[in-house]
C-alpha cells in the first residue's frame, strides 16, 4: 500500500475515540465540553480528507487549473463548525447555571447532593 493510504482515517478514529473517552470517563463538565469539541473536529477531518483529490487545488476557479478538490464537503463542514460553536456556547451557559444551582461542576458531587436531598 502506498503511503497516505488509509492513515488519515485511522488518525480520525484515534482522535474520535479520545474525545469519546473524555466525554464518558471524566466527571468535570468543562472537560466534557472539550471532549465533545475534539470529537467534532475528528468528524470534520474525516469529511475534509474525503474531499481531497490527488493534485487537486483549492476550489477557487482559475483558467490555469484543471483539477480541484471536492468543494461540497467544505461547505457542509463550514456550516458544521459554526453550529458547533453555537452548541458549545449553550453547553457552557448550562455549566454556569449548574455552578449557580449546585456550587460545583463535578458530576460526582452533584450526584451525591441529589442523593442527600431526596
Amino acid at each position: 500500500m502506498e503511503f497516505p493510504g488509509l492513515i488519515n482515517y485511522w488518525i480520525v478514529v484515534v482522535l474520535m475515540m479520545s474525545g469519546f473517552y473524555i466525554v464518558i470517563s471524566q466527571g468535570n463538565f468543562v472537560k466534557k465540553i472539550v471532549g465533545l469539541n475534539i470529537f467534532q473536529v475528528s468528524v470534520f477531518v474525516l469529511y475534509i480528507s474525503m474531499s481531497k483529490i490527488d493534485g487537486g487545488a483549492a476550489p477557487i476557479l482559475d483558467e490555469a487549473i484543471k483539477n480541484y478538490s471536492n468543494p461540497l464537503p467544505h461547505v457542509l463542514i463550514l456550516t458544521a463548525i459554526v453550529v458547533g460553536v453555537a452548541t458549545t456556547a449553550l453547553g457552557l451557559a448550562l455549566i454556569v447555571r449548574i455552578k449557580d444551582a449546585y456550587g460545583t461542576i463535578e458530576e460526582d458531587e452533584i450526584i451525591v447532593q441529589e442523593r442527600n436531598d431526596s
Binding site: F44, I48, K52, A58, S69, L78, I81
Partner: peptide
C-alpha cells in the same frame, strides 16, 4: 488538505 475556507473558519471561530 486544500480546504482554505474551512481552515479560515476553524482558526477564527
Amino acid at each position: 488538505l486544500t480546504a482554505v475556507d474551512v481552515a479560515f473558519t476553524e482558526a477564527s471561530v
